[in-house]
């Protein structure tokens, strides 16, 4: 009895960790954009859903596995994010928050309803061979698709870390985030860097969408849930912190899986929002954020 319980608990935690990696990648996109530009992307979940639909379409109509279409989707999202920042968001960088909110809300409405108009309201998922496979790790059974998705998410997060610490553009972006005026003074093209950042954030969430579709089917109505989920993760981890976003993703992934096991599954989001409230009040910089930032 207890042995069974601990096994199913360990199973749930393992599942939560794997899903949490994909959550982390999704939240990373939100966190990067906020950390650099101080803009909260209220269209984040909608972008996630668009990424999921693109991967679904590639699979459904062109028989391309989401894992293979992922790089293409990421590039497409980068270009779209870059253009969006250049064209629409840039003038709003220094505007009041409610105006930024309204702008991104309008973008969110457009994205999600474009999905609705094109793909309809039904759940859309992909059927892959790998969904029936699993790996055994001692007594634990890990779904193959979940493991692949998690490993890919880690790899992408690693690439991102290399980009921000090793490349000139990445370092310039961090410089602009630390000190906007200073970056202008030393002659960095901040507008281009911001567009680049938004592109990187969009690419993260697009890639996360391509991974997520291998785990869970998509419908337009999930967009709001993903937006809220991303908010919870980045706040818990620390808005603007990269490690925080990944750790927050893992934490929320595990807590959802465990809450789903111990409580009614429908109560799991109550747990997440309770956690969000506690973190906001007691440690608003997040578990991994720096105080005063």
């Amino acid at each position: 009895m207890t042995a069974d319980f601990f096994l199913s608990l360990a199973q749930a935690i393992a599942k939560g960790l794997l899903t949490g990696m994909v959550y982390g990648l999704m939240a990373l996109g939100l966190s990067v954009v906020f950390g650099v530009m101080r803009i909260v992307n209220f269209a984040h979940g909608e972008m996630m859903v668009v990424g999921m639909y693109l991967a679904w379409m590639g699979f459904e109509y062109l028989q391309v596995s989401p894992m293979l279409s992922l790089p293409l989707i990421a590039i497409l999202f980068f270009a779209a994010g870059y253009a969006l920042q250049r064209g629409l968001i840039s003038p709003f960088i220094n505007r009041p928050e409610h105006q930024q909110f309204l702008l991104l809300l309008a973008i969110a409405i457009l994205l999600v309803n474009a999905c609705l108009a094109i793909a309809g309201p039904d759940l859309r998922g992909v059927q892959m061979e790998a969904q029936f496979e699993s790996y055994e790790l001692g007594p634990l059974v890990l779904d193959a698709v979940r493991l692949h998705a998690a490993l890919t998410a880690i790899a992408i997060a690693g690439l991102l870390w290399l980009f921000f610490t090793r490349t000139r553009t990445g370092k310039s972006i961090r410089a602009a985030a630390d000190n906007h005026t200073g970056a202008l003074v030393v002659g960095l093209d901040v507008r281009r860097l911001y567009a680049f950042t938004f592109g990187v954030g969009a690419a993260c969430v697009g890639a996360a969408g391509a991974l997520m579709i291998t785990i869970i089917p998509v419908s337009p109505f999930l967009a709001v849930e993903y937006t809220l989920l991303a908010f919870v993760i980045v706040i818990v981890g620390g808005l603007g912190s990269m490690t925080g976003a990944l750790a927050g993703g893992l934490l929320i992934g595990v807590s959802e899986a465990v809450a789903g096991l111990l409580l009614q599954p429908s109560l799991k989001s109550m747990f997440s929002f309770g956690l969000l409230i506690l973190v906001l009040l007691l440690r608003p910089q997040g578990l991994f954020g720096k105080a005063g930032s």
Binding site: L88, A114, L116
Partner: peptide, 22 residues
């Protein structure tokens, strides 16, 4: 007769208003 088209118009209208009359 396209689902979501009403919201697309609505989103466009919001976009136009926030860009031109912030």
């Amino acid at each position: 007769r396209i689902s979501g088209i009403k919201q697309i118009f609505y989103g466009l209208a919001l976009l136009v208003i926030v860009v031109y009359r912030p």
